[in-house]
């Protein structure tokens, strides 16, 4: 459900509304369960995104992985996410906020990895570089616009795993388990995408898809860090 107040909920959460408008919105919220529910969901996704951001960003993660699996990491610059994060401020519409929060969830653990793999000439704000998007206009947009970055990250990590297998660092049984697990996650991603395509406004589905995609990145990342360096 969408009414005249829906698009102001983001501003309300950000504290951007004037006193009068804030009072009017709060009066409206008292009598509008739909807006109250939407606001509650927004608070939840934002809280979850913030919670993930608060986890220590592994800015030096990739060099360690690269060293373990024998992939060059020299071209990638480690950036200070904390410094950028301190300057960042995001103001979005309801749909944009939900989408951005979902993307942050998606990239919560992979963001540093992606940041490391972007060109050092990239001068866009980190929030955009991390998410790989310009401000989006719909909830489907973030899925489409982050797909390239996500696919690239997944492909590179899968390639690294493949190298691990070919070099004998990963035995075939472990590779089989990882492959099965990736299939399990991919299946979940497909289901979530289909559901989201049918109901693009669902904050739960956005969040769930983002979580599941993050799980895939996380699995690949963890699998690589678990590859032992036998000497």
């Amino acid at each position: 459900m969408k009414d005249q107040w829906t698009d102001r909920l983001s501003g309300y959460l950000d504290g951007d509304l004037g006193v009068a408008e804030r009072g009017a919105l709060e009066a409206h919220l008292a009598g509008c369960p739909a807006c109250e529910a939407t606001l509650d969901e927004l608070r939840r996704v934002v809280a979850r995104a913030q919670a993930l951001e608060d986890q220590p960003p592994a800015t030096d993660l990739w060099p360690a992985i690269a060293e373990q699996i024998g992939v060059s990491s020299g071209a990638h610059r480690v950036v200070s996410l904390a410094a950028h994060r301190a300057r960042r401020r995001v103001s979005l519409t309801v749909a944009q906020l939900a989408a951005a929060a979902a993307v942050l969830l998606l990239l919560g653990s992979g963001g540093a990895y992606l940041a490391l793999h972007r060109s050092t000439q990239d001068n866009r704000p980190l929030a955009r570089r991390q998410t790989g998007i310009e401000p989006v206009t719909g909830t489907i947009g973030w899925v489409q616009k982050t797909s390239a970055s996500y696919d690239s990250a997944v492909a590179e990590l899968q390639g690294a795993l493949e190298q691990g297998r070919n070099s004998g660092r990963l035995d075939s049984a472990t590779v089989r388990v990882l492959t099965q697990s990736l299939v399990t996650i991919d299946s979940a991603i497909v289901q979530a995408r289909r559901a989201l395509a049918a109901d693009p406004g669902s904050a739960y589905l956005n969040q769930h898809l983002a979580d599941t995609m993050r799980r895939k990145l996380e699995l690949l990342r963890r699998a690589n860090t678990l590859v032992p360096a036998r000497t």
């Binding site: 369960p33 529910a37 939407t38 509650d40 969901e41 406004g201 669902s202 904050a203 739960y204």
Partner: peptide, 10 residues
């Protein structure tokens, strides 16, 4: 149940 939206309630 106090708040409901599609696929979620609280």
């Amino acid at each position: 149940v106090t708040n409901t939206s599609k696929h979620r309630f609280s």
